[in-house]
């Protein structure tokens, strides 16, 4: 356990040592902040004069739904760009710098290495999420009416979605020694998953169902409307551990040209 934590800590710290990590963090803060402010202002504008926007009865729209529902939907798009950047360095960069060679000769199991790295990345992702809690506080403070269930579940869903995406990104990162290739690959995979939701939306019958079941976004949606179902939890856990397993397998083979 100490070893896993040591690896996680190093991975976590490495984000603060690289301009890419810091830049990603700053961009995430900026963009999510802009989303939040725009959504709140929009809400205020509409609520002052609902008729103008063709809404006769505004009370039907919940504040939480309007602000945080759309907020997390926007952040999901942001994840598509952020996750490839956060994960591209995990293994690809180590392979490029050939720093794994020494690591593999220590009394460590591959599992400890992979879990440690994954954990460090998740920590950084969580640090990025902290300000989101701040937005909730701001919202509460400016007198927003909170529907705690959907907000917190939306938060949890976003966390699960992030974990799943990060696991996929780390796996892709083991396949190459070029961080940029890793980032592009991860982005492609995530976009593919993104398309599942769209396909599910325009397909009927069994295929629609299959794509919907496979789509991370469809599973995420339940969280954002305040439904916590076992199915969605199992889906995200399976997604996460499946990619973790693939990462382990990929590390085990070590068919890498190191010279």
């Amino acid at each position: 356990m100490n070893k896993i934590l040591a690896i996680a800590k190093r991975e976590f710290a490495s984000y603060f040592h690289s301009w890419i990590g810091v830049l990603t963090g700053v961009m995430f803060l900026l963009i999510s902040g802009v989303f939040f402010v725009v959504l709140v202002l929009n809400y205020v504008k509409i609520s002052m004069n609902p008729q103008q926007f063709g809404l006769s009865n505004f009370s039907g729209i919940s504040q939480t739904q309007f602000v945080f529902g759309s907020f997390f939907t926007n952040l999901n798009v942001l994840l598509l760009f952020m996750v490839p950047i956060l994960t591209m360095r995990s293994f690809a960069e180590e392979r490029r710098q050939e720093t794994l060679e020494i690591l593999f000769t220590y009394p460590l199991s591959d599992f400890e290495i992979v879990i440690g790295k994954q954990l460090g990345i998740i920590w950084f992702f969580e640090v990025l999420m902290l300000p989101l809690l701040g937005y909730m506080a701001v919202f509460y403070w400016i007198g927003g009416q909170f529907d705690w269930g959907p907000t917190l579940l939306g938060f949890l869903g976003f966390w699960f979605l992030g974990m799943a995406y990060l696991a996929a990104g780390v796996f892709i990162s083991t396949l190459t020694k070029h961080p940029v290739v890793s980032a592009l690959g991860t982005f492609s995979i995530l976009v593919l998953f993104w398309i599942f939701e769209w396909v599910a939306g325009i397909t009927d019958g069994i295929w629609g169902r299959i794509f919907s079941e496979l789509s991370p976004l469809d599973h995420y949606k339940n969280f954002s409307v305040g439904i916590l179902s076992l199915q969605d939890l199992v889906y995200f856990l399976f997604f996460f551990f499946y990619f973790l397993f693939l990462t382990l397998r990929s590390i085990e083979t070590r068919h890498w040209k190191t010279s």
Binding site: R10, S14, I102
Partner: peptide, 8 residues
């Protein structure tokens, strides 16, 4: 080739 984490 001694490759160590350059950022540590």
């Amino acid at each position: 080739s001694v490759n160590l984490y350059p950022d540590m």
